[in-house]
Structures are given as structure tokens and as C-alpha cells.
Design a protein around this nucleic acid. Sequence first.
RNA 1: GGUCCCGUCGUCUAGUGGUCUAGGACAUUUGGUUCUCAUCCAAAAGAUCGUGGGUUCGAUUCCCACCGGGAUCACCA
Length: 475
Amino acid sequence: MADTHVRTRIAPSPTGVPHIGNTRTALFDYLLAKKYNGEFILRIEDTDQDRLVPGAIDKIYDIQKFLGLVPDEDPVVGGPVGPYIQTQRLDIYQQYVQELVNIGAAYYCFCSEERLEELHKKDQYAKYDRHCRNLSAEEIKTKLDSGAPFVIRAKIPETGFTVWHDLVQGKLSLPNTECDDKVLMKTNGIPTYHLASVIDDHLMNISHVIRGVEWMMSTPVHLFLYESLGWQPPILAHVPLILGPDKSKLSKRHGAKSVLGYAEDGYLPEAINNFLFYLGFSYQDNSALLTLDEMVNVFDEHKIQKQNAIFDIQKLNYLNSQWIKKLDSEEIFNRLKSFIPEEWQKEKDKVISIVNIAKERMYTLCDFVPASDYFFSSPAVDKKVVLEQSAHSEEETKKWFLSACNLIEKTAIFTSENLHQEFADLQKDSGFSPREAFMSLRVAISGRTVTPPLFDCFVILGKEETLKRLKSVFA
RNA sequence: GGUCCCGUCGUCUAGUGGUCUAGGACAUUUGGUUCUCAUCCAAAAGAUCGUGGGUUCGAUUCCCACCGGGAUCACCA
């Protein structure tokens, strides 16, 4: 197996937007493929035509693109083993399901849905009772000729165990008696997941199938199909689930969103990738900022955890804030574009200099605008708050402001360092503590008590605007 | 209910039959830096390694049972 050419795939169903767990699986697929210089493939599994969600396919592409997990082969760019959409491969499935019937690995089933429902009414956990498993050739022919609707089911062995080595779960052994005779081909002539994925994975030369543990119990069905067709099964890796803070399956209740939702909330793809990477995986101290390429280098498929992992938004926040600090401000500006008003976008240089000083106060991209709006429009300043912060009488505070304005007016070098220097001297003789002196000015120019360093703000506002705001307090 | 998987600080995890009085990161708390907040730095607290039995000179590490959590049992994927 060591010399197997690695090809991985993600196989989303366009019945909704992939959730965060699917996306982590996609990350692992991507990392594994790239680590071994293989291919990462996207195949659309649209065999459930009844539940198609319009636009879902676009979202799938959007997620991959946003995270930089770009497939080497997919329905759009194509590839040597297409088509990559299952409903375009219906004749292929038909051919193989016929073969399965011919060799006795699958059989026609004419049971009505009512009969099946009846079975489940008696026992909610009932398996198919294999009513049609041993129909005679004549019976089948008669039914077929009469045009009776049918499905084709797998003829799973009634005894024994299915054993395989799972890349993350280790040695697994499931009793065949637990397996249902799963439907392979539905009445409408469209295959189920079980049939389609096995055929496609084989035909597309997929070497590793990474999927959620929810597929573990139906693996014997898939392995039975591989064996019946005389195919070598791929390496299987069943990865654990991502749980909500209460250890139950992550759901909308926990604010679970797709990656697109996190993008809207101002999270960077780098941070999301890192977060997903560290969830159920271990590398160094699990807090290093890694690019996709770096993750490829350090990824080890044998280190994927078996336990379910709990989604911890604090860790995501941390990673996101770190990435915001790490990326240069020009880059942050580009990411910020959809988060800031149009008027701001025209003042790129100004926004970038604000980003420079606001960066370390940001957890997400959404934090930027509410924390920086006073740079673009005059804030409402409450004189009472200014006086509160100055802790001096109005008279004295007014005097302090006056001297501050004078200093600014005659300062030739309007830089943060220089202002800091000169204001330090001024403050010493003012009778105001540093806190009183600077906080009162801060409130005067911003209308708030929390801002980046005062003199950085002065510089961004400019001499004129700073003076204007300072003077207007006691005007 | 049957079957299968999992169980180390709140969270993600490291780790090994004795060096573990169990290490790191995030979160929390405190201190330092400081014009605020934040950053940054330092420190503290936090896990009798799910519980109970074995095996062993010795178990968090091996075995069993139990308990807890999860998955699955569709003409959905």
C-alpha cells in the first residue's frame, strides 16, 4: 500500500450547505492528498433528487475556494475520470448493479413501501426481512414483465464478520448479521449512496476514503460490494464528529454554521483551517499559526484522534486574532472590504493606518467598523464624560485643553512619537495625572473611553481635525 | 433495545509499566509594561489520568466489569 498513488475525494451532497464537520473532513482529504503529491477531487453526490437544495452546489464551491482547498478535479474543471456529478453517471451504475445481480450479490425486491412501513411499525429497529431475497427466476421475470416497481438490494452474507483496518479507528470487526440488505438501486433507477460511492471511488481510483464515523456501521455493505465486484477497496478512515459545548451533536441550536457563516462573522480562512486542523489533531502546542502548505508538511494521518471533539469558539477567536495580527495591514484591508462602508473603501491609506493601530484589538473582521467609526465622522461627545475622566473642574479642564491645543498648533512634527514626547512634558506641569490628562482628551476626540493609543489617533485624524474636536468640547 | 466506537485539567491535546508530585496550548485569575482597552511578558489556579476490580514489586499506561458519552439500525446522504 505504501506505493499507492494517493487520491482523495470529498463527496458532498447538494442537499444543504456542508457543515463544519464536513469541512474538516475536506481539509484532511486535501492535506493527505497534497502530502503525498496526489490529487484531491470533488464529486457531487446528487442521488437524492428529492432533497436538492437550489444553490447548494455553489456554496460548496464557495467554501472550498474561501478556504483555499481547491480540487484538482471537479465538475467544473473536469478531469480524466469524469463526469464528476453522479446523476450524469446513471448508466454506469446501471451496468454494475446488473452485474451484481448476475453474480448473485444483489437481488430484485418488489416489496411495497407500505409493507416496509408495516415492518417498522412492529419494531422501530427492524431490518428488512429479506422477503424477496430468494425469489425464483420465474417469479422475478413475471413481476418484471408486469412492470412492477422494484428496487435492487445487496445480498449481504447472513453470517460471519466484516473485518477491516481503519486508518483512524484501527482494527474494526462488525457482525454481518447487523447489516441490512441495503437498497442499492432505488425504484426511480437512481442508485443510493452505498452503490454510487463504491463504484465511483473505484472508477476514480480513490486511494483513501475519509468520512465521518456515521458511515462506520454501513462499511460492511461497501466492503461487500468491493469484494463482489473483485475490486480492491480503498483505505478507509472514519473521523470523529464535532460536538457542541454540551457534547451533543453540533446543531443550529449551538449556533452551528457553515464555513460561509463564519466568513460572514469575520473569521479568516487561515484561522478556520488552523482551528479545524487542531480539532482532533495534535501538533506541537496546538496554537501555532500554520499556512495550508505548512499544514500539509506536518499533517500525519496516523495522528487523527478517535474521540469526538467539542467545538470551542474561544480557540477559534484566539487563532483568528493571531492571524489578524500576523497578516500585514494591506492584506487585512483587502479582507476588510466587504465589512466596511463604501466611503471608507475610497480612503485606503487611512483605513490601513487605522488597521495598523486597531489590529491588536480585533478578534474578527467585524470588530473593525464599530471600533473605528469616529475616525470617519465626528463622534457625539458628552462634556460630562470628559470632566469625569479629567477629574478636575470644568475651569481647570478647559485650561488643560487650551494648552493642549496650543501645543498641537505649534508642533511642527505631527507624529505619534513626537506628540507623545511633548505631551508628556506638558502633562507634568498641568496638575493632571497622565490618566486624567490623556483620558479626557481621548473622550474629546473619540467620544469613548477605549481607543488605540491617543497620539496615534491624533495623527490619523490630522492636526486640523484633532484641534477642531478638542475645541468643540468647550465651545 | 442490538451492534460498534470513545473516556487525561472547562476545551484541544502530550505522554509512558516506575523519570508523572501527569507536560503544552486556548479559556480563567493575578502581577508587570502602559494615557484607556488590547497586545506583550511573567505567574497562579485547574486532571486523585471515568469508576471498581484484577495482573505486577509497581499502572494513568496491560486485562475485565461497570458507568458515562457518541454513532448506527431509510427507496437520506
